[in-house]
Design a protein around this nucleic acid. Sequence first.
DNA 1: CTTTTGCTGCAACTTAATTGCAAAGATTAA
DNA 2: TTAATCTTTGCAATTAAGTTGCAGCAAAAG
Lengths: 136, 136
Amino acid sequence: MQTVDEILRIKKVKITAVRTVVLRHLLSQEKAQSLKDIENALVHTDRSSIFRTLKTFEENKVIHSIEDGSGMVKYAVCAKGCNCEPKDLHYHFYCNNCNKTFCLFDVPFQNIELPENFKIQQANMVIKGLCSDCNH
Amino acid sequence: MQTVDEILRIKKVKITAVRTVVLRHLLSQEKAQSLKDIENALVHTDRSSIFRTLKTFEENKVIHSIEDGSGMVKYAVCAKGCNCEPKDLHYHFYCNNCNKTFCLFDVPFQNIELPENFKIQQANMVIKGLCSDCNH
DNA sequence: CTTTTGCTGCAACTTAATTGCAAAGATTAA
DNA sequence: TTAATCTTTGCAATTAAGTTGCAGCAAAAG
């Protein structure tokens, strides 16, 4: 696993205190985090600073955002080599029971045949149901 | 095309004035509508009434909601026979240029091989890019 | 060392979604 | 038919997430 500093250096994002703690937090979580999740975890860090940090991370493809239908945008660290292009797309899974949102990196993303003259640029794919921990 | 009253009768939603105008509006639009879109179109109808109408429609599977990343939830009328089950799922397309959200009923929805013991219940699939009108 | 640029924290604001409540309307029971 | 009950509606107020302006501070550039 890459370190926080390595990731920021590779993505050309200046290393700062806030960015370090936010990225460290995101890396330490198995599920995607909302702004509120991060805010709650990092009680000494200001909300707007976290917010701007997330925007910076997203612009520089350190993280990607997921709209899972919970009403809050969630963020997850991009996989190594990800450029947030169509080829890097993956499904997300939202558990209706435990409310966790995961990246399904292992589920192949099929090529979708769009109507004539439509062009894909990004996608937000969220499958909802029960995760293995909650499916009994 | 089914009439507004037919749809409501089939879905066992009592016919009222607000429900009729909201559903008629949704049926008349080619793109999915946000609460604000509907509010702007139906100037004489109260926002909270439209809001509660949409909730009622969604519970009774008259419409389905789509989170397209615009920050506003969009709503579209379910296809005839839809039960909002996995088999009824379809992709949505959000145009980054004209901001319209369409249901792609004609794009086949492939079966997704989920990890062991995960169960799909619903999905929110949004492909983003340029629609045929905007892709030049 | 001085200037410039960018980051941070605080407070305030915007926008969308949601709720409480009372009045109006529809339905059921007597 | 009338009374009682339940549902829907409109208005006002609130909640919650996201976003911005600004001043102070720190890092980088000259």
